[in-house]
Computed example of a mutant assay.
Amino acid sequence: MPIVTIQQSPRSVEMKRELANKITEAFVQAYEVPPEAVQIFFSETNHENWAKGGELAIDRK
């Protein structure tokens, strides 16, 4: 069974719902598995808890 982990800054429930649907459909088509076999975990980190290029995301403009 495919397991997908997505690490991201917070997104709306609507956006996660749409992404989960599209990722599931991609696995159904590519791997020929039933939708219920696909698991997706969203791991969200606030901007003050991650950095890029040595700068916290909360400080980026």
Results as ranks from 00 to 15, higher is better:
16 K>C: 05
6 I>S: 08
23 I>S: 05
45 T>E: 08
13 V>P: 13
38 V>Q: 15
43 S>M: 08
29 Q>K: 12
37 A>D: 13
15 M>H: 14
34 P>C: 00
1 M>H: 10
46 N>P: 13
58 I>F: 00
53 G>S: 08
17 R>Y: 06
9 S>M: 02
4 V>G: 10
7 Q>P: 05
43 S>W: 08
13 V>K: 13
56 L>T: 12
60 R>T: 09
11 R>F: 00
17 R>D: 11
57 A>Q: 12
24 T>F: 03
13 V>H: 07
44 E>M: 10
35 P>R: 04
49 N>Y: 06
46 N>S: 11
56 L>C: 07
49 N>I: 00
23 I>E: 05
2 P>E: 01
57 A>C: 09
54 G>N: 03
53 G>R: 08
10 P>M: 07
24 T>D: 09
15 M>W: 11
12 S>G: 14
60 R>L: 06
36 E>F: 00
18 E>D: 15
22 K>H: 11
14 E>P: 07
2 P>L: 01
9 S>N: 10
9 S>T: 13
47 H>T: 12
60 R>S: 04
40 I>S: 01
41 F>Y: 15
54 G>A: 01
57 A>T: 03
35 P>A: 00
34 P>F: 00
60 R>A: 06
12 S>C: 06
44 E>K: 14
11 R>Q: 15
10 P>A: 03
24 T>G: 11
38 V>W: 12
18 E>Q: 12
35 P>H: 00
42 F>V: 14
61 K>R: 08
46 N>E: 14
36 E>A: 00
47 H>S: 13
60 R>I: 06
60 R>P: 06
36 E>G: 03
11 R>M: 08
53 G>A: 09
47 H>W: 04
21 N>F: 05
36 E>H: 10
60 R>D: 11
1 M>N: 11
27 F>H: 15
22 K>A: 07
10 P>Q: 07
23 I>V: 15
37 A>H: 13
43 S>K: 13
31 Y>G: 03
14 E>W: 01
40 I>W: 01
43 S>R: 14
61 K>W: 01
59 D>F: 06
52 K>F: 03
30 A>P: 05
1 M>G: 12
50 W>K: 09
47 H>Q: 15
52 K>A: 09
61 K>A: 05
58 I>E: 09
14 E>C: 02
10 P>V: 05
61 K>V: 10
24 T>I: 09
35 P>T: 01
48 E>G: 06
24 T>N: 12
33 V>Q: 03
37 A>I: 09
37 A>Q: 11
45 T>W: 04
20 A>E: 05
2 P>I: 02
16 K>M: 06
10 P>W: 04
7 Q>I: 05
